[in-house]
C-alpha cells in the first residue's frame, strides 16, 4: 500500500513555501513604448518583445528563488525554463489583468484592449488570454494561489530532456503540497479548489503554445527587433 499523506494544515495558517514564493515575486516592469516611434503594429510588437525580454530576466531570477529549484542540476533548471517560460509570462499577464474587464495589462503603462490587439495582429492571442483571465476571475484567484500555480507550471513543464526525473518530481510534490496546504487553511468551504486551479493549467499551456507560435512567425517575418534572450527561448521551443 503506498503511503497516502493527507495535507496537514499548518497551524499558523501560513505555508512556508507560499510565503517564500510571495517574497520571490519580481518587481513590476514598465513597457515604456518609444515616444519617438509613430503608432503601428511594429511599434506595439517591438514594445511587447522588449517588455517580455526584460520580464524573462526577472523570471529567471525568480525561478532561482523557488524553494528547491536551485537544488536541481543546471541542465534540468534550463530544461524547465525552456519549456515553461511563455506559460510564466502569460500567467503573469493574466493575473495583472484580473481587475480589468476585456483588457490585457501587459504593464501598468501598457494596457491593451481588443481594438489595439487587432491593430497589432494579436486579436486571437488577446482572446485566448482573456479566456484564461475570465476563468481566474470567476474563481477569484488570490495572489498566494497565483504565485504557487506559477511555480507549479514551471516544475510541471513536461520537458522531454529532464535528467533527474525524481528531483523534478520532488519539486512538483513540494509545490503541490504547498497549494493543498494553503487551500486547506484558506478555502475549507471548497475542498476541490486546489484541483480546480490545477485544471486551469491545460488552458495555460494551450494559450502559451499559441503565443510561442505567433511570436515565432513574427520572428521569421523579421520586421520586429527582438532581444537575444527572447530569441534564444523562442528558438528553444521550435
Amino acid at each position: 500500500q503506498p503511503h497516502r499523506k493527507q495535507p496537514s494544515c499548518s497551524t499558523l495558517g501560513e505555508n512556508k513555501v507560499v510565503t517564500l514564493l510571495l517574497g520571490a515575486e519580481p518587481e513590476k516592469v514598465c513597457a515604456m513604448p518609444d515616444p519617438a516611434l509613430p503608432d503601428s503594429d511594429i511599434k506595439a510588437l517591438t514594445t511587447l518583445c522588449d517588455l517580455a525580454d526584460r520580464e524573462l530576466v526577472l523570471n529567471i531570477s525568480w525561478a532561482k528563488n523557488i524553494p528547491g529549484f536551485s537544488s536541481l542540476c543546471l541542465s534540468d533548471q534550463m530544461s524547465l525554463l525552456q519549456s515553461a517560460w511563455m506559460e510564466i509570462l502569460v500567467l503573469r499577464v493574466a493575473f495583472r489583468s484580473l481587475p480589468c474587464e476585456d483588457k490585457l495589462v501587459f504593464a501598468d503603462d501598457y494596457i491593451m484592449d481588443a481594438e489595439q490587439a487587432k491593430s497589432a495582429g494579436l486579436l486571437e492571442l488577446h482572446k485566448a488570454i482573456l479566456q484564461l483571465v475570465s476563468r481566474y476571475r470567476s474563481m477569484r484567484l488570490e495572489k498566494e494561489e497565483f504565485v504557487t500555480l506559477k511555480a507549479i507550471a514551471l516544475a510541471n513543464s513536461d520537458s522531454m530532456h529532464i535528467e533527474d526525473v525524481e528531483a523534478v518530481q520532488g519539486l512538483q510534490d513540494s509545490l503541490h503540497e504547498a497549494l493543498l496546504d494553503y487551500e486547506c487553511v484558506h478555502h475549507r468551504e471548497d475542498p476541490r479548489r486546489a484541483g480546480k486551479l490545477i485544471m486551469t493549467l491545460p488552458l495555460l499551456r494551450q494559450t502559451s503554445a499559441k503565443a510561442v507560435r505567433h511570436f515565432c512567425s513574427i520572428k521569421q517575418d523579421g520586421r520586429v527587433p527582438m532581444h537575444k534572450l527572447f530569441l534564444e527561448l523562442l528558438e528553444a521551443n521550435v
Partner: peptide, 20 residues
C-alpha cells in the same frame, strides 16, 4: 547548451536578483 548561452549565464549568476 551552446545555443542557450544567455539562459545558462543567468542561471549560473549567483547574485540574485539578476541586474537588468
Amino acid at each position: 547548451k551552446e545555443k542557450h548561452k544567455i539562459l545558462h549565464r543567468l542561471l549560473q549568476n549567483s547574485s540574485s536578483p539578476v541586474d537588468l
